[in-house]
Design a protein around this nucleic acid. Structure first.
Lengths: 236, 236
DNA sequence: CGGCATCCGGGAAGATACTG
DNA sequence: CAGTATCTTCCCGGATGCCG
């Protein structure tokens, strides 16, 4: 019996997976480890280098990021790509299937922000800010604005195209945009989700607006957070 | 410095949470710990006792289950309810907000079963089997069957009501049902998702069918698994 | 029986330093 | 820039035991 335990602990058939045929359980085997889902999030708008992922996920260690990327690649969600010679180096991108996790992440996020403990005034990565706009524009009460909004978020620039009550973000220089936000993602999140007035953020130099300022002002009101769940909760 | 580390480890502001304003990250703070999502799953069709949750989640330790239930209760997802005097004891149920995680879990599961590594011929809990029917009936290619199917799954009995291309499961005795499956959840999963013929399962005594047998046969073909994602994956 | 406290072993995650 | 090496900390799982 001791021998059995030994051999099982050495190369057991299932070390730390849920042995469960349910799809949800399998999802946890795929992306349930710590940081895995946030790594996926950072790759949702295009491939990234190791260092950039790490910079956008403050708190993850290089060691852990290496392990997560290895695991996600082994599971068929992430691809390691070599950049063409001029910009030598390698980046990590999502497979088609991996990218299909995007709407699920959106639904998960919309559910989670109803938490009484959720605080939008915290760190925001550039990608998570853009994804949050896409996710919240799927809400029933999404604005019907049609516009192209640019974002200069330090290293990364994005354009958000709003059309037919939905929003779609893409990396790229803000050209042909109606308005441009420039600042840290957290500052923009404070304006849109935290209720901080644009003027206050501009006054302290956290944010700069270019283009149609009235449009920018209106943009900050487009994504109302869903109502919080009651604290004590009601039985069902 | 040692002192700082000590005090921080004792009541630090954030020991192992992601300090991230993004909704998806907050979701992981709520339900990202190991087993947490599966505990939620087990409560989706009604309150359960500690021991029953544990019995349906082989592999979880009593210790861990206690911690998860505490955490989920603190986060406002789970409620500890006292049963009325006759059946003394206590059960754990979901709050309204906690129950709203159901469609998100469904989407997550539908995404995950496209994994090349997913194997439906494994352990299935009674709840996860019923939830899988609800999730898969939301697929675009859901059958248009209208029927009431009963399930006798050991301790727990359920009725699945199929209507308007959707399925809804509820605990309860199979009464007024068109057909009844009786057996272990894994056996029924083998028939529906694993492609094992009903007759084979009946022959080995793993399954019994009552009522309209042709309907039962047809039921097993109603939930085709989505196509697998390609193994090497294509870049996007 | 239901639930919680405690101890132990193994392994994953975090911090730091270092290398090609 | 892209990781690896090493060490420490802490979480998870198993076992046992206590208590209502």
């Amino acid at each position: 019996m001791e021998l059995d335990n030994l051999t099982e602990s050495l190369h057991g058939p299932s070390r730390r997976r849920y042995d469960d045929g349910c799809g949800t359980a399998h999802a946890l085997d795929l992306i349930g480890e710590r940081w895995a889902l946030l790594v996926m999030r950072e790759l949702m708008l295009g491939p990234k280098r190791f260092s950039d992922i790490r910079a956008d996920l403050p708190g993850i260690s290089a060691n852990t990021l290496t392990q997560r990327l290895e695991g996600l690649e082994k599971n068929g969600l992430v691809l390691r790509e070599k950049l063409p010679p001029p910009a030598s180096g390698q980046v990590y991108g999502l497979t088609e299937w991996g990218h299909q996790l995007l709407p699920v992440m959106g639904a998960l996020g919309r559910w989670a922000v109803r938490s009484p403990d959720h605080d939008p005034n915290q760190h925001f990565s550039a990608v998570s800010l853009m994804l949050s706009f896409m996710a919240m524009s799927q809400s029933p009460d999404a604005g019907r604005l049609e516009a192209r909004i640019g974002f200069r978020l330090g290293r990364e620039n994005y354009v958000l195209t709003m059309k037919d009550g939905g929003a779609r973000a893409a990396r790229g220089e803000p050209v042909d945009t109606d308005a441009v936000f420039e600042g840290a993602p957290a500052a923009i999140a404070a304006a849109v989700y935290g209720g901080v007035p644009l003027a206050a953020l501009e006054a302290e130099g956290a944010l700069k607006i270019a283009g149609d300022r009235a449009l920018a002002e209106r943009f900050t009101t487009l994504f109302p957070l869903p109502p919080k769940a009651p604290r004590p909760g009601t039985p069902r």
